[in-house]
Amino acid sequence: MTRLTSGLQREILRLGRDIVLNSLVASPMIPPQIRWRALRTLGLPVERAFVQARCFFGGRDVHIGRGTFVNYDCFFDAAATISIGRNVRIGMRCVVVTGTHSIGSSEQRAGDELAQPVRIGDGAWIGANVTILPGVVIGPGAVVAAGAVVTGAVAADELVAGVPARAVRSLNP
């Protein structure tokens, strides 16, 4: 009985968080210049940043540094920590995934749940429609071209593009 009650309580809390965080705060009715304050009030470690409407936060462990710009419709699952540095630019409809599964048997290939943090370094630029997968570290000053799927580390001051993302060239610091 206790396990059922605690599971139900977790679901009610998650639902409440989603209603407030991903409906009210994510609403276009909240000006983006103050959305960071609302996120911070709800427990997300967000510095003074510009977060556009309709972004989804799957949890509170999303760190956003000062001067960062997050465009419309971004998705942060937050099964593990997501750390976004200072002065980062994130294009519209980006997806940052920290949760995944191990490969199970043929009866159910999505096995045990796993989570790995994602880190985006200061000054990085993430183009529109980029997908960043669990465990990725994007170095400071890196650029990820629009539409890329980032599956591995991106060095500082490096431009990557493609599916999967591959190094295109080094950039001047």
Rank of each mutant, 00 (worst) to 15 (best):
T2F: 13
S6R: 11
S6E: 12
G7Q: 03
I12T: 10
L13P: 00
R14V: 08
L15Y: 12
L15N: 10
G16D: 02
G16R: 13
G16V: 06
R17G: 12
D18K: 08
V20H: 03
V20Y: 15
L21Q: 02
L21C: 08
N22W: 06
S23Y: 15
L24C: 14
V25S: 10
V25K: 13
A26N: 00
P28H: 12
P28Y: 12
I30V: 15
P31T: 00
P31K: 01
P32I: 00
I34F: 13
R35V: 08
R35L: 10
R37Y: 09
R40W: 14
R40P: 14
R40D: 03
R40E: 03
T41Y: 15
L42D: 07
G43W: 14
G43H: 13
G43R: 15
L44F: 15
E47P: 01
E47R: 04
A49K: 03
F50Q: 14
V51Y: 13
F56Q: 09
F57Y: 15
V62W: 01
I64N: 01
I64R: 08
G65V: 05
G65E: 02
F69H: 12
F69L: 08
V70Y: 07
V70A: 07
D73C: 03
F75Q: 02
D77H: 08
A79T: 02
T81F: 05
T81N: 07
S83G: 07
G85P: 02
G85W: 01
R89K: 11
I90R: 15
M92W: 05
V95A: 13
V95P: 05
V96Y: 11
V96N: 10
V96H: 13
T98C: 10
G99Y: 11
S102D: 12
S102W: 01
G104F: 05
G104E: 09
G104Y: 05
E107Q: 09
E107H: 13
E107T: 07
Q108F: 04
Q108C: 05
Q108D: 10
Q108K: 11
G111E: 07
D112R: 15
D112F: 08
P117Q: 00
P117A: 00
V118S: 07
I120G: 11
G123E: 11
G123A: 09
G127T: 07
N129A: 10
T131G: 01
L133N: 09
L133I: 04
P134T: 14
V136T: 05
V136K: 02
V137Q: 00
I138W: 05
G139V: 01
P140E: 15
A142Q: 02
A142P: 08
A142G: 12
V143I: 13
V143N: 01
G147T: 00
A148V: 01
V150D: 01
V150C: 04
T151K: 00
G152R: 15
V154N: 11
A155D: 12
A155Q: 14
D157M: 04
E158S: 07
E158I: 06
E158A: 07
L159T: 00
A161H: 09
V163I: 12
V163T: 05
P164D: 06
A165I: 04
A165M: 03
R166C: 06
R166A: 05
A167S: 13
V168I: 11
S170H: 09
S170C: 06
P173Y: 06
